[in-house]
Write a protein that binds this DNA or RNA. Structure first.
Length: 191
DNA sequence: AAAGCTCACAACCGCCGGCTC
DNA sequence: AGAGCCGGCGGTTGTGAGCTT
């Protein structure tokens, strides 16, 4: 089933008039006010811009709300524990940012994805760990840190991945696994 | 001081799966 | 059964801020 861009919500029938780019405080205010007043369920994202008096496509509104305006979003730097959780979960499920975000309350998939791409990937590479495979970059490297990390990830992949993937949509399922004592104790970069 | 570069992150884009008709 | 709508996802891009030269 192929889908056009218009069907996915980026452009409506008057696409040339739909505004793109950064949101203004006024637009934010309109969006927040409408959602807070009417809650979810009585409208669709596609219909919302018109209802709220916004010259945006529904998809842009949804993204703005879920990634930035939602009241439960946690702002600020990632803690060591959050960082550790992301790395552990990424080793289990890969680039499933929404599944990872489900286990980090207040964090969005977009935020985690950005954090991974700008910080964690580099950090792992500096440690000599491939951020994709979570294995040492050099096959012959038997350094203790790499070896511990490798054992840890393999242990988790073999024992936990099936159940994690099966329940990745339900929040709270993974966090206890990702943060369990074994993993924290084996954390090769400390803290 | 200013031009160029790098980094971080908000936003865009295209695609997919589920659902409805 | 299949076409279309919708919400959601992950990859990519644009841009502003901060840093370096």
């Amino acid at each position: 089933m192929g889908r056009s861009a218009s069907a996915s919500g980026w452009y409506d029938e008057k696409s040339s008039l739909v505004k793109k780019g950064p949101w203004t405080p006024e637009e934010d205010e309109k969006l927040v006010e409408y959602i807070q007043r009417y809650g979810h369920g009585s409208w669709s994202w596609r219909a919302l811009p018109k209802l709220a008096g916004l010259n945006r496509c529904g998809k842009s509104c949804r993204l703005r709300w879920t990634n930035y305006l939602r009241p439960d979003i946690k702002r600020g730097n990632f803690s060591q524990e959050e960082e550790q959780t992301i790395i552990n979960l990424h080793a289990l499920v890969g680039n499933k940012w929404s599944a990872i975000a489900n286990n980090l309350p207040g964090r969005t998939d977009n935020e985690i994805k950005n954090f991974w791409n700008t910080h964690l990937k580099k950090k792992l590479l500096q440690m000599g760990i491939d951020p994709v495979t979570h294995r040492p970059v050099t096959a012959t490297n038997s350094d203790n840190i790499h070896h511990l990390y490798y054992l840890m990830i393999n242990h988790l992949l073999s024992s936990l991945a099936p159940q994690l993937l099966a329940s990745s949509s339900s929040s709270g399922t993974c966090s206890s696994l990702a943060n369990n004592n074994l993993m924290m104790n084996m954390n090769p970069w400390g803290k």
